[in-house]
Design a protein around this nucleic acid. Structure first.
Lengths: 252, 252
DNA sequence: CGTCTTGTTGAGCGCGATCAATGACGGTGG
DNA sequence: CCACCGTCATTGATCGCGCTCAACAAGACG
């Protein structure tokens, strides 16, 4: 783990391109300057490095500047469950607030960098800036919703449907960040996808091949291209939200 | 749904026996008095009634005074996943904060009563009482941890293990509230347990019968008695936390 | 008492797990 | 540069846990 204490412009929230997805949503420039004083340090992680481990005392929460991380939750017997994959602008370490120590482990899937948000100081600042408090609550709440969708997937969907909704969820989140969303690289291995979806890697592989055969996607190793997005939505058991938006104006 | 606007003593947080599990943890009596002015209304629910539905605009979060509720998350095609079972002192409706409308539906499993916590006013108060803010964040964070355990269960455990850890989790939460924790009534149907655990009701039934045969539990309809708690922990793939506590002093 | 809902138990099947072999890269050293 | 190796992914063959379908039992309720 490589700590960087940086006062260069790119280290400040006020000029960070992720402002619209990260903590500073809906906050006035003068208040963002206050956040700048709070978020001064960053951590640089190589692929495979841990940001925090289960049981580490909570001192900070983290926002991803670039890169991808996974969080996983382990059993005494060694079995591990991947809980989430995390993209730039997302906040990590929130499960440490409850009991003062992280419950999961966060590991970089590629070279990544995260901003350190000292938690004590952050809570103080959130009390001073109502919009910051609101945004933090929104982030926590959306994290809950994301986990609930994940629970629905593991509890009620078949392997095929889980994989389809996983790909679509990833695509949506990439799109929200302005990345190319119908063609991207999977930063996680088949093992990690399988763990996340509660299925075996052979099943992941087979389903991806089947999707490709059906003309829903193209896949070469970890590079994936979504061809028939509507078809994927149909498979996932949910409607394409973009379609819903397109149709609404016509009926109302 | 039956609204009650009550100024009787029992309606106040300051005298509520749930204070130690609910919002007012770690808050001074004078500050609890402020919470009293916020939490004046309650809702009385009959079995089967909804507290809120998916899409309802968020106006409040709720704390359970008595009774049990389930939250579930639905798919367009009708499939539903039970996300959680909720006991007195727990906060409901947190998934509505993210986008201003509830993402799940909360339904009473028995006659229940919840306190209405107007959300706007609550956020204001949380800014004035640092300990209230801290406690709220702890509650949100623990909710995340609970969901993560649930994900581990659905993603990595076999049916038998899921059921064992479900029973133990319920038992722990009942114990924390001072209820009898080795003998209690399941407030939820087999269908609801099955949905929660991502297995079919026949499997729930069979596993319970098997547990009873093995002498781990006694069960008659919805009344359950845990006989061999350590055995259940072993089945669930986790260690009995009470044992860990007992052993620790010896080795250190 | 019959009816309806909820839970239990049995029999057979199928989805996805498991075991196994092969293929595709990427890195490393000769 | 290619040969070698380790890791990761794909594909096939077989197995088994849990699903599905079905019949029956036990309460709950009018």
């Amino acid at each position: 783990m490589n700590y960087t204490n940086s006062d260069v412009p790119s280290g400040k929230c006020s000029v960070c391109v992720l402002g619209q997805f990260c903590l500073p949503v809906g906050i006035s420039p003068s208040d963002i300057a206050k956040i700048d004083t709070l978020v001064k340090e960053r951590v640089h992680l190589q692929k495979g490095e841990s940001l925090y481990r289960h049981g580490d005392p909570l001192s900070a929460v983290y926002s991803i500047r670039f890169g991808t991380l996974k969080t996983e939750y382990g059993l005494e017997d060694g079995r591990q469950q991947v809980i989430g994959f995390h993209l730039p602008g997302e906040i990590l370490g929130l499960d440490g607030i409850g009991d003062g120590s992280y419950q999961s482990e966060a590991i970089a899937l590629e070279e990544s960098e995260v901003c350190i948000i000292r938690y004590e100081a952050f809570e103080d600042l959130a009390r001073q800036i109502p919009e910051l408090q609101k945004q933090f609550h929104r982030i926590l709440s959306r994290e809950l919703t994301q986990d609930q969708r994940h629970l629905l997937s593991l509890g009620s969907l078949r392997a095929e449907e889980r994989l389809a909704s996983f790909l679509l969820n990833l695509s949506q989140r990439l799109a929200a960040r302005g990345y190319l969303n119908n063609e991207f690289d999977l930063r996680m291995s088949r093992v990690e996808i399988g763990s996340y979806l509660g299925i075996q890697i052979e099943t992941v592989s087979r389903m991806l091949s089947r999707f490709a055969e059906s003309g829903l996607i193209q896949i070469k190793q970890r590079h994936i291209k979504l061809i028939d997005v509507d078809g994927l939505y149909q498979l996932a058991g949910i409607q394409n939200p973009e379609r819903t938006v397109q149709i609404k104006p016509c009926v109302s």
